[in-house]
């Protein structure tokens, strides 16, 4: 009875002004707390396994640490030395070149494949699996197969050239061909993941808009360019960023197939970092190289973000 009376009184009398807001604030507060609690494991993980190593990495890049014995603060000496390191400069250029060539080509080919697979062709399920298989195959296995393909004497590549009467090539022994040969493997191996993202994005393109375009008399190109392409914006950005990061981190292909050679013709930044850190034991110097790599990846990601914004604004 008391409760009912109170409720009736509450309905008739003017409500106290602060009570709901306080309740709302309390609710909001508890929601916030719940949010932080749920975020905590991820934050702790990020702090321990990402932030802390990054801070340590930066600190180490200013030392001459070599794993063994005492180490000293050397200021920016490692970064100054990087500027005059010809091999590092080559690795940097090769990495950027590898990224600039493989990312757009792989994106374009993956999009074409996704468009094909989205068009209701026969056995598209099997085709998707086939295209995705290189992605789930260990890179070392992929590289080993491609080593055979590129083998000068008995390799498939030179056999194909032979069919057309062309001379055999030293795919991995000719300094002008070694990096392009690696790029080809990189493009081929990365197609599956990009294709899947594009396929998912294509399947979420608005049917209404596509039909509207057709009703307006748009041909297939106009429909693609004016409806499908803009709808793929977020997918482009995602594929671009992840592919760029992956390209900057290319290591296993180089390690297995060329060891950066002949000379320095196919060396990349990650391979140089590995060599200096774990073969040359120059961890401080390798840390400085890693810092440069992180900054470069950040710059390229920002460029992608800007391009995405420009594209969506248009």
């Amino acid at each position: 009875m008391t409760a009912i009376k109170t409720e009736v009184a509450g309905r008739t009398a003017a409500p106290p002004p602060r009570a709901p807001r306080r309740r709302a604030q309390g609710l909001q507060g508890s929601r916030k707390r719940a949010g932080w609690v749920m975020l905590a494991p991820a934050l702790v993980h990020a702090a321990v396994f990402l932030l802390l190593p990054m801070v340590m990495l930066v600190a180490l890049s200013f030392t001459d640490y070599q794993f063994l014995g005492a180490y000293h603060w050397v200021g920016i000496d490692n970064f100054v030395q990087l500027m005059s390191d010809d091999r590092w400069r080559t690795a940097l250029l090769n990495t950027v070149l590898y990224t600039v060539v493989t990312v757009p080509i792989a994106m374009a080919v993956a999009l074409l494949i996704a468009l094909g697979l989205n068009s209701g062709i026969r056995a598209r399920g099997a085709m998707r699996v086939l295209y995705y298989m290189p992605q789930v195959t260990a890179t070392v296995a992929v590289a080993t197969v491609w080593l055979w393909i590129y083998q000068p004497d008995v390799g498939l590549a030179n056999s194909v050239l032979g069919l057309f009467g062309l001379p055999p090539q030293g795919w991995l022994t000719n300094p002008n061909l070694s990096l392009p040969s690696l790029m080809l493997v990189g493009v081929w191996q990365g197609l599956g993941a990009k294709m899947v993202v594009y396929l998912a994005a294509l399947q979420s393109v608005s049917r209404d808009q596509l039909e509207a375009a057709q009703l307006d008399g748009a041909n297939r190109w106009q429909t693609f360019w004016n409806v499908t392409w803009p709808a793929l914006g977020p997918a482009h950005f995602f594929v671009f960023v992840t592919s760029t990061i992956a390209s900057f981190q290319v290591f296993d292909l180089v390690f297995v197939m060329t060891k950066g050679g002949p000379g320095s013709s196919s060396t990349v930044m990650t391979y140089e970092i590995y060599e200096n850190a774990f073969q040359g034991l120059q961890l401080g110097y390798a840390a400085a190289q890693s810092v440069v790599l992180v900054v470069l990846i950040g710059v390229f990601t920002l460029i992608g973000l800007r391009l995405q914004k420009v594209s969506s604004d248009v």
């Binding site: 390690f255 961890l283 890693s290």
Partner: peptide
């Protein structure tokens, strides 16, 4: 998982080293 990132390993090695 697909691509070895020496920079990450160097970062972890840094922690091991400093600690």
């Amino acid at each position: 998982s697909k691509r070895f990132a020496p920079s990450a390993v160097v970062a972890v090695a840094a922690i091991v080293a400093l600690s």
